[in-house]
Write a protein that binds this DNA or RNA. Structure first.
Lengths: 129, 129
DNA sequence: CTTGACCTTCCTGTCACTGGAACCCTCATC
DNA sequence: GATGAGGGTTCCAGTGACAGGAAGGTCAAG
């Protein structure tokens, strides 16, 4: 199967698939004409990667997870550890964003939003708190 | 005032301050020896930038907000518009992250996390749902 | 006169791609 | 046989917002 079909099937852009090969996440074969040839296992890995990325795992996490996936003797604790770390990062990001949203939300509520220049948002940013 | 003092006072790394000059957000003067010389207005702008960045505004948003800040005839509606757009982006990010966290959280809960290889997390990523 | 703490510029790297240029392969059609 | 469309290939540059580091200039203190 060629890269275009793989892109359609996995939902990943061809560029992304080439990139994943470039960083050694997948190793498709090559046809005589130089075209990449994808086997079922390559498709499988790409789907795995797509799902892991959708859950926000970094590429390096994906590399680790993929290795664990292929290691029949893995300990599920290792997987859980990676996932827990990632979950903690997500939670941290969420609370950062929530703090921003609260502050920003208050400022927006306080701003008249008309054609006058007075603006609590700018006042706050300017440090006149 | 030199860049080190400004860094201390604003809490911004010197690297960041140089970068902000590079992209024309600030325009400190220069001493005969080539050192940057910061005036009160530069400090003020940097504090403004620090706060805006802490609220997650992009650099381009900051540029817009700074321009509005310095424009005495601005309409607060313009500021509010920028802020509202940004708030929407934050909300979108939060809900993306929440979705990830929920999915990931369930998977983590379902994973034994012991030395056995069976792992619902990998099963899900592998597409065996 | 040297030391050490500043400052300068410039280049590279980050992360995970994306866009684009320039070129090759294949098949169908005229 | 020429042509065109629609694949594929490589390689280079850009994204955002800096951070790290090298190589070198400046300045006050001892």
């Amino acid at each position: 199967m060629n890269i275009g079909d793989v892109a359609t099937r996995t939902g990943l852009p061809a560029k992304t698939i080439r990139y994943y090969e470039d960083i050694d996440l997948i190793k498709p074969l090559r046809d005589d004409n130089g075209y990449r040839v994808f086997r079922a296992q390559d498709l499988h890995k790409l789907n795995f990667l797509g799902r892991a990325r959708a859950l926000g795992f970094t590429i390096e996490d994906c590399r680790t997870l993929l290795a664990l996936y292929e290691d029949e003797t893995r300990a599920s604790a290792d997987v859980k550890h990676v996932a827990r770390d990632h979950l903690a990062q997500i939670d941290a990001k969420i609370s950062d964003l929530k703090a921003m949203r609260d502050t920003l939300g208050h400022l927006i509520d306080a701003c008249a939003g008309d054609d006058r220049p007075d603006c609590p948002i700018l006042q706050d940013l300017g440090g006149k708190s």
